[in-house]
Simulated assay, not measured.
Amino acid sequence: MATDDSILKHMLETMEQSENMTPKQIKIVEAAIELIAEKGYHATSTSEIAKRAGVAEGTIFRHYKTKKDLLVSIVIPGLTKFSAPFYADQFVEEVFQQTYDRFDDVLYHFIKNRFAFAEANIPLLKILLQELAFHPEIQEALKKVFTEKVYPALNKTIDHFKAKGQLMNIPNESIVRMIVPTILGLTISRFILQPTIDWDEEVEIKRTVSFIMNGIGKD
């Protein structure tokens, strides 16, 4: 299960308060998220969801016409509408509204923050990765959050360290394209692809920071 500061907990609390969902509906959504994260959407049946939620399968269909309806109408909007903006704001405050002497430090705290976030939200991270390619609504929602909340803060930070002479004079968009996919790939490898591998997290983070800086930093 997710930890106390996870998206899942925040999402369920928000749904319960703003959507007037019953305790049974909350259990259904929670069970669906857990099972889809474990097995994937197509391998998860409504009977399994019902069993884990402790409700009759018919209860699911009283609220949602199909399993697809459950995913699209609850899980995906819940993740993107309620949780993504909240956590984007938190992310920007924790990483980009701090004072750093070097851009290396920004990258280090960027990665540490995303690691902590991923570790607390592995079930929803798995669903996001599994379903992102198949649901334009997820793509658009995440794009909107990044464009409106994360990119402006990152762009301002890049401008600041360019002015200090620490970064190459190349377009900020290019720098962002080098930073974000690299950190995302490291995070996915750590928590989804190789969660049991024995590695030194600090060493790997510092290697990744060095790799990025070799591409965008000035000697």
Rank of each mutant, 00 (worst) to 15 (best):
residue 106 V to A: 02
residue 45 S to M: 06
residue 24 K to A: 14
residue 145 V to N: 08
residue 63 H to G: 03
residue 45 S to I: 01
residue 147 T to D: 15
residue 26 I to H: 09
residue 175 I to Y: 02
residue 101 D to P: 01
residue 108 Y to I: 08
residue 84 A to Q: 09
residue 152 P to Q: 13
residue 117 F to W: 14
residue 91 F to T: 05
residue 31 A to K: 01
residue 175 I to H: 00
residue 196 T to Q: 12
residue 98 Q to F: 07
residue 187 T to K: 05
residue 19 E to W: 13
residue 33 I to T: 07
residue 80 T to P: 11
residue 28 I to H: 06
residue 73 S to F: 07
residue 166 Q to F: 03
residue 193 L to W: 15
residue 188 I to W: 13
residue 80 T to L: 10
residue 94 E to A: 14
residue 84 A to W: 06
residue 169 N to T: 13
residue 218 K to P: 03
residue 160 H to Q: 13
residue 40 G to I: 01
residue 4 D to S: 12
residue 65 K to G: 03
residue 42 H to S: 13
residue 78 G to K: 04
residue 184 L to A: 13
residue 52 R to E: 15
residue 121 N to Y: 07
residue 66 T to W: 01
residue 115 F to Q: 13
residue 50 A to N: 06
residue 129 L to W: 11
residue 24 K to C: 06
residue 101 D to I: 06
residue 54 G to W: 09
residue 6 S to G: 08
residue 19 E to A: 03
residue 19 E to C: 07
residue 8 L to C: 11
residue 135 H to L: 00
residue 47 S to Q: 15
residue 71 L to S: 07
residue 75 V to L: 15
residue 80 T to W: 05
residue 28 I to N: 09
residue 15 M to D: 07
residue 181 P to F: 05
residue 3 T to S: 12
residue 160 H to W: 10
residue 180 V to T: 06
residue 91 F to Q: 00
residue 109 H to K: 10
residue 103 F to Y: 03
residue 202 E to F: 02
residue 111 I to W: 00
residue 109 H to Y: 11
residue 6 S to Q: 04
residue 87 Y to D: 01
residue 131 E to Q: 07
residue 184 L to F: 15
residue 42 H to Q: 10
residue 68 K to H: 11
residue 44 T to L: 09
residue 36 I to L: 14
residue 96 F to G: 03
residue 63 H to S: 11
residue 117 F to M: 11
residue 168 M to I: 15
residue 129 L to I: 09
residue 130 Q to H: 12
residue 108 Y to V: 15
residue 28 I to E: 02
residue 195 P to M: 00
residue 118 A to E: 10
residue 188 I to G: 09
residue 202 E to Y: 10
residue 62 R to A: 12
residue 47 S to T: 15
residue 22 T to D: 05
residue 31 A to Y: 00
residue 36 I to P: 07
residue 27 K to L: 06
residue 208 T to Q: 02
residue 175 I to F: 00
residue 42 H to M: 10
residue 29 V to I: 14
residue 21 M to Q: 01
residue 74 I to P: 06
residue 83 S to W: 03
residue 52 R to S: 13
residue 169 N to Q: 12
residue 83 S to C: 11
residue 32 A to Y: 08
residue 29 V to Q: 04
residue 182 T to C: 01
residue 62 R to C: 04
residue 34 E to D: 14
residue 97 Q to P: 02
residue 147 T to V: 10
